[in-house]
């Protein structure tokens, strides 16, 4: 099967800190990959490098098998990769609709914005996600929303573009059980339509349930990779993770 995206021996340093050390990772079409590791392991740095927010100090990024140069966040989105960042990447003073279409506005020629269409689509997405109460409409500022609702906006944005690969960085943090289930449903829907998900979390139970394959990251290095088939339970995955990290 084709690799949607591949990181090849990528190193990323922040001053003296080596956040990623020759890390390699790939995601295939129709696959859900769970990226796990402790806080500070470099998970967020890895995905930010993958989606063009950070440029790697060493190593390569390949999209559908082809090396990309001067990779950046806009190119990643244009290549069909959408990301729900750990910090949600929202602009709280702006409306829900502006946030959903941030950076990928629906445009007339010369860059004027199709406002009506955006509002219509935003309302549809909000209903589809089912995160927000009926009192909230697409015109209200994101800053008025609860944590779960903000998360919903970030996910709505990722849904809208029908991305080939959706990257979710700790998407279930601070969510209620009900909301967490909605995120899972969403991931399963993406998988069903033969698209891919890269799911990051430090809650092993969440990652275990929905992933086909696991990648364990520790102190910037990919220390282990295993298929769902070779792990029988989240507890076993947890044990494997502990052992590899201790040995590393």
């Amino acid at each position: 099967m084709e690799n949607i995206i591949q990181l090849d021996k990528v190193t990323k340093k922040f001053g003296g800190i080596t956040a990623l050390n020759k890390a390699s990772l790939h995601v295939k079409k129709g696959e859900v990959v769970g990226l796990i590791g402790d806080n500070g392991a470099g998970k967020s740095t890895l995905i930010k490098t993958l989606v063009g927010v950070y440029s790697p100090d060493e190593g390569h990024i390949l999209i559908r098998g082809k090396n990309v140069n001067s990779w950046n966040a806009l190119k990643a989105r244009e290549a069909g990769i959408e990301t729900v960042f750990q910090d949600r990447a929202l602009t709280p003073q702006q409306s829900i609709v502006k946030n959903i279409f941030m950076g990928k506005e629906l445009r007339y020629p010369f860059g004027f914005i199709k406002e009506k269409e955006q509002i219509k689509e935003a309302n549809r997405l909000i209903r589809e996600i089912g995160f927000t109460s009926n009192l909230i409409n697409a015109d209200s500022p994101v800053g008025n929303l609860s944590g779960g609702e903000r998360q919903g906006v970030a996910i709505a944005r990722a849904i809208y573009n029908n991305a080939e690969l959706i990257v979710l960085d700790e998407p279930t943090n601070n969510l209620s059980l009900n909301e967490t289930q909605k995120v899972f449903d969403f991931v399963l829907n993406v998988k069903k339509s033969n698209r891919s998900v890269l799911f990051i979390g430090h809650n092993i139970y969440h990652v275990y349930d929905i992933s086909d394959r696991f990648v364990i990251l520790d102190r910037g290095e990919v220390v282990h990779e295993l298929n769902k088939r070779s792990v029988s339970s989240p507890e076993e995955l947890m044990k494997i993770m502990r052992e590899t990290i201790v040995r590393h």
Partner: peptide, 27 residues
């Protein structure tokens, strides 16, 4: 219109609101 209904103005508002978010969204 440039400020309220055009990509230029909208991007300006996103950037001034939270430049990290704007950058992550490809602006």
């Amino acid at each position: 219109y440039f400020f309220n209904k055009h990509v230029f103005g909208i991007h300006i508002q996103h950037v001034g609101d939270n430049s990290v978010s704007a950058e992550q969204m490809g602006i």
